[in-house]
Design a binder for these strands. Structure first.
Lengths: 223, 223
DNA sequence: CAAATAACAATAGTATTACTATCTTTTTTA
DNA sequence: TAAAAAAGATAGTAATACTATTGTTATTTG
C-alpha cells in the first residue's frame, strides 16, 4: 500500500497554493531539504531558486518570505503527526497503551527509504528537530496565532491531552503535560545528538528516551 | 545590600572582552535590551551602533557576529541561574525543598526594579524565554560545543541533576529530567503568554506552572 | 479553435544586512 | 611624555530580502 496523505492547509500560509503546480510543489519539497541541509538562517529563496531552476520572483509569488515557508512546512508536519497519532491508536481500547504508542511514534525517527511523497516525512522530522521552535519564536506569534497558523499544533496537543484525560480524568494539567511530551520528544533528541551531556543517553538510544517519557507521564498521572 | 555578580566568561565568546570598557559593556547591556525589543532576527549591529552612538566597526571588534552576542548573553544568564540556584538552596537540608525552591526560582519572573547591573536580570530572563534556544539551534552547535560555549548550561543542568540524584539515587534519568524542567520552565511560560491553548493556565498564573512542574518531578521520582 | 488569462521566466533594481579595510583621533599605560 | 591600544569616521563589498516590469508560454473558457 502506498498511501499519500494531503491536508487542507490554512490559506494564510501562502500567496498562491503551492500544491496547485509543479513549481509550487518543488518549492515546498526542495525547500524543506535545503533548509535541513543549510540551516534556516543560511537558507535563502535565491539559493532555492537556483537549485530548482526557477527564479526568486516565482518563489515570492507562492510565499511571502522564508519564515512563512517554515511555518507551512511545520504546519504540514503537525497535521501529519496528528494523523499518525489518530491512525496508530485506532482500535486501541486502553488509554495507557494509546499513550505508550504515541510516545514511541513521536520519538522514533521515521524511515528514510523510498519516499515519493510531496513532503518527505523524514525531512519533516529533521526540520521539527532543528527548526521547529523557530516557527513560533518570533515577534509575530500573536498575529500568526490569530491567523490560526498554529492550529494544527494545538490540535495535535489537544489530541494527546484528551487521551491523558481519558487515562486520568482528575489530572489537572493535561495540556501542560501534552505539550511537554511533544516538545521534549523532539528537543531531547536534539540534545542526545548534539549536546549529550544534557541527557542520559550518550549514544543514539531511543529506548532510554522512550522509557524516560513514559515514566514521566505515567508516574505523573498515577491515580 | 547591593550585590553585583560577575562571571568568568569563556574567551571564545568574544574578540575583545566587553567587560573591559564602557563601550563593551554598553554593547552587551543595550544589545540585550534591543534584541528583546526587536527580536533576534530583526536586531542588527548597525541599529545597536546607532542606539549607543558608536559605529558598527567598533561592535565588530568585540563580537564576531550577532549570534556570538546572543550566546554570550545566554551564557551569562545560565551562569547567573546556577549562581541563584546554589545561593537559594544554601543551608537547605532536604532535597525535596531544594527542588521545590529551584522550580520556583526558574518559573517566577525576576523583578524589574532598579537594576543597575551590567546585565539586567529581567532582560536576560526575557531573552531566555524568547531567544534562548536559538543559541544552540544552529549548524554550529557541535563546533560551539567543542569550544565549551554551552558549559554553563550543562553545569546548571548537572547542578539540578545532582539534587535529583540526592532525592532519589536510584532514578535512572536525572539529566533528562533536569533538562526537561529547565527547558519547560521557560518555554511553558512562553506558551502561557503567547499560545495559551497549549497550556492549562490561560492567565499569567505562575502557580499552576509551578504545581505542574513540582508534580511532574516528585511523581516521577517517587521511590 | 481563438481569445483571454493566468503562470512563469528573465531581467533589473533597491534598501538593508553582514561584514572588512583603512586611516585618523582619542584615550590609556608604561 | 612617548608608545600603544582603542575608538571613531568613512568607505566599500557581496549577499540578502525583497519589488517591479515586461515578455513568453501554458491553460482555461467562450
Amino acid at each position: 500500500m502506498q498511501l499519500n496523505v494531503r491536508f487542507k492547509m490554512n490559506d494564510k500560509l501562502y500567496l498562491k497554493n503551492p500544491e496547485d503546480s509543479a513549481v509550487g510543489r518543488q518549492i515546498v519539497s526542495e525547500g524543506l531539504k535545503m533548509i535541513n541541509k543549510l540551516g534556516f538562517e543560511v537558507f535563502t529563496f535565491k539559493k532555492l531558486a537556483t537549485e530548482i531552476h526557477t527564479t526568486e520572483a516565482t518563489i515570492y509569488r507562492y510565499f511571502e518570505n522564508k519564515h512563512r515557508l517554515l511555518v507551512y512546512l511545520m504546519t504540514w508536519y503537525w497535521s501529519y503527526l496528528e494523523y499518525k497519532v489518530v491512525f496508530s491508536i485506532n482500535n486501541l481500547s486502553s488509554a495507557e497503551i494509546k499513550l505508550k504508542t504515541i510516545i514511541k511514534l513521536l520519538v522514533v525517527e521515521p524511515a528514510h527509504t523510498q519516499e515519493d511523497q510531496f513532503i518527505s516525512e523524514w525531512e519533516a522530522y529533521q526540520l521539527m528537530k532543528w527548526e521547529g521552535s523557530k516557527a513560533y519564536l518570533t515577534r509575530n506569534v500573536t498575529k500568526d496565532n490569530k491567523n490560526r497558523l498554529f492550529k494544527p499544533y494545538k490540535d495535535l496537543c489537544s489530541r494527546i491531552s484528551s487521551i491523558i484525560k481519558e487515562y486520568n480524568p482528575k489530572y489537572k494539567f493535561p495540556n501542560f503535560l501534552a505539550s511537554t511530551v511533544l516538545e521534549m520528544s523532539h528537543s531531547q533528541k536534539f540534545f542526545m545528538e548534539n549536546l549529550p551531556a544534557l541527557t542520559d543517553s550518550p549514544e543514539k538510544n531511543d529506548d532510554k528516551l522512550i522509557t524516560f517519557l513514559q515514566d514521566l507521564i505515567f508516574h505523573t498521572l498515577k491515580k
